[in-house]
Write a protein that binds this DNA or RNA. Structure first.
Lengths: 158, 158
DNA sequence: TCAAATTCATTCGTATGCAAATGATATCAA
DNA sequence: TTGATATCATTTGCATACGAATGAATTTGA
């Protein structure tokens, strides 16, 4: 045989060593779920640095109430992607701080109506400009063009 | 004056009505943080549909231990982006289920070493192929080309 | 019409996720 | 060497997040 015979096995080993996609090789750090979780963590951290006295879900509730006006608790939850149990906790805490007020629906007695208080309205109007900064800072690692593409694809994914 | 005089004010109003970017208009649904949260929620839901008996953080801990072998609890946490308090809870639950085992570091008595048990190793090796499916399904709304672009930009953001 | 199905809200249990405080151990620097 | 720092782990408290169970009220459909 010729010198340094190379078998198919050898070639396969070579490829593996060269970091070919390998069935036995699972890279956690490259999985979309893992990176999505980290990106979300980073955003929450940026949010907290700008708005210390409100969480992103609390802000979302106030912003949506400001947008649509009085709604039921469950309806609000579906608007901001929170299940009933979660939205209840968020609204309870906003109520305890006087930012929203609750009332019973006159016709449908199952429903609990939520509305901004004057204080809640002042707060959200004051915070919205800061929220714009938070969005900017979150997207800062991307160019304007990249950010536009990213937002389009992220929306398709969500 | 000519008929139908148009003032600058009128034009500004027109633009606002035509949905120009308006300073007084904040669209929660278009903010990166809000969509990031929803995309993450969707991924967790897909994960749960495929792997019912493990959460994504628990899976991440097992996958990373499988990758790097025995490490300290804090080190593991930094590898999978979890703070000390969070990783402790995750490891406690994995230990309670017999998937990891803990031991003291012989030299540095502060450290708590974590390692897979045989059962934990079996579990993670069995689950990794399923995790690939989860990644696929999460990215399914995107074409292959879009997914590649998205992953690149998401990584820059995280 | 009225029983079945649905909707709204609440509660419970479990699991992240993080800030802050604490204690034990290790390292650094004067 | 030792006093100041830093690191590792734990604990507490608070805030999402969601499945499942429950009860009240409403809507639907046979």
């Amino acid at each position: 045989m010729g010198r340094t015979a190379v078998s198919a096995e050898d070639i396969k080993l070579k490829l593996v060593e060269a970091e070919e996609p390998d069935e036995n090789d699972y890279r956690l750090q490259e999985q979309v779920g893992f990176i999505l979780r980290k990106a979300h963590q980073r955003h929450v951290s940026i949010f907290a640095a700008h708005i210390a006295d409100l969480t992103p879900p609390q802000f979302a509730a106030l912003a949506k109430l400001h947008d649509v006006g009085e709604t039921s608790q469950n309806q609000l939850g579906s608007l901001i992607a929170m299940d009933a149990a979660t939205v209840k906790g968020v609204i309870d805490r906003l109520k305890a701080r006087g930012l929203v007020e609750l009332s019973k629906h006159e016709v449908d007695k199952r429903r609990l109506l939520v509305n901004l208080t004057a204080e809640g309205r002042d707060a959200i109007e004051r915070l919205i400009p800061i929220a714009r900064d938070i969005t900017q800072e979150t997207l800062a690692p991307l160019s304007a063009k990249e950010a536009a593409i990213f937002m389009r694809l992220l929306a398709k994914l969500a």
